[in-house]
Design a protein around this nucleic acid. Sequence first.
DNA 1: CCCGAAGTTTGCGAAATCGCAAAGTGCTGC
DNA 2: GCAGCACTTTGCGATTTCGCAAACTTCGGG
Lengths: 256, 256
Amino acid sequence: MAVKIRNSCGEQPTGHVDRVKSMMRKLDESLLSHLAPFAGLTRDEIREILDQASTQRFNAGESIFDEGAVAERFFLLLDGYVRVVRITDGGDHVTVLHIPSGQLFGIASALGHTNYPATSIAVSESITLAWPMRLWSDFEARYEGFSTATQRAVGKRMTDMHDRFVEMATQQVEQRVANALLRLINQMGRKTDQGIEVDFPITRQDLSQMTGTTLHTVSRLLSAWEKSGIVESRRKHIVVSRPQELVLKGKPGAQH
Amino acid sequence: MAVKIRNSCGEQPTGHVDRVKSMMRKLDESLLSHLAPFAGLTRDEIREILDQASTQRFNAGESIFDEGAVAERFFLLLDGYVRVVRITDGGDHVTVLHIPSGQLFGIASALGHTNYPATSIAVSESITLAWPMRLWSDFEARYEGFSTATQRAVGKRMTDMHDRFVEMATQQVEQRVANALLRLINQMGRKTDQGIEVDFPITRQDLSQMTGTTLHTVSRLLSAWEKSGIVESRRKHIVVSRPQELVLKGKPGAQH
DNA sequence: CCCGAAGTTTGCGAAATCGCAAAGTGCTGC
DNA sequence: GCAGCACTTTGCGATTTCGCAAACTTCGGG
């Protein structure tokens, strides 16, 4: 095994950039072949799909599309992470959803929409493929399983949303934050020596926007958890060292 | 204009029962022809669809299907109202959604599910049509527009859900309850002399389960609003007499 | 006609969470 | 190497909302 190069505190492993560069050079069929919406398609079909796609790179913090804009394109996240947010009249940001790489997003057509219902922002450097939205119905008609796979994806997001809604309606802040963090490390976590780390830069404010609380309260909770040895955190980094104990915090009736 | 017969306080108008009876007798093509999923289909197609359906009647409070059960059938609500709830480990009930008549529900297949993700309960006497779930893909394939219409319906429920999530994350209880009540009278309201009444029996507890609060708090809010002349309520009945003022209560920064 | 169940109201103290303020800390660019 | 900005921490009082308790009201059934 290669010796790990420790880069200046908290950067993505060097592998990332290389991967990105290679993606930008050529679009390999194998990029898509193992993803649910394209599983089972022939090499030629995938080639066809790739040839119609445009690649794009986004820096962390860059917006990919904005709420209300006409939905001209739909996207596949090849690498990185994307956050979907809604902004209220009062200016509050609420994070509706996180997209890990490999998933479609901005799929307004799958929901019968002509405009994007929310804003998408890259939370770490991200690479996307994008297709003109008019191809959506072609894809559904032409490619076996595409439609089913996207339905399933929509269904999953729907039930996730319900889960979070129920959580918001019934649990208190500590439980909500604990569960949000657990979801993050489950779906977008990276193993480290000290535990599982959220795989993109994340602030207290970000967490508060996912859970409907304030950055202050999140800070207090993380401090408390850090004292109990459940998490370790640095600026924009959160490592969960004892996930099982965090699970307890996420359940109603947990001890304090 | 006919003189309105005032029936014993708060019952459904007599027309309801008659309508129900006539539905039970024969299934008329006109029942479906104006509903989005079936719009534009021929008389014969609708006949075909109706012939495969089974009709069922539910009393208020009766469960139509339960969370987790294998999704054997999908439903169309012909008359009445249905509430979709999730029940937490802690036993809390959270209302995810209300279905007005004319809409499909229990459409797990549209979301790629094999089991119902939530429980459905009739909140007033309700009549449903139901089809075996295996027909879902037939319907999608055979009937022009069915698929699109259901996608749109799913999309609408998705954005509604997002809206409510954002609301839950950012607004305080009074605003949430005000908005919930406004949605109820907009979508399932009935005009009366005193204002707009929620068209099915609804308790403080029900409202609290829609908004993530307690029946006590809802009671206090309704009492206050009643004092200001915004609503009038009797046991299980809520009439909004001044909707515009309720809209103000639903906005952040409203005066008290 | 009365009784019991279900739904509603209200008071009051307790708890959770916020909001504001101020200070600390780490990172980046120059 | 330093300045400035972004992010974080923490204290404390204010506010919202809950939780519990008790009484009241309405309705339907026997």
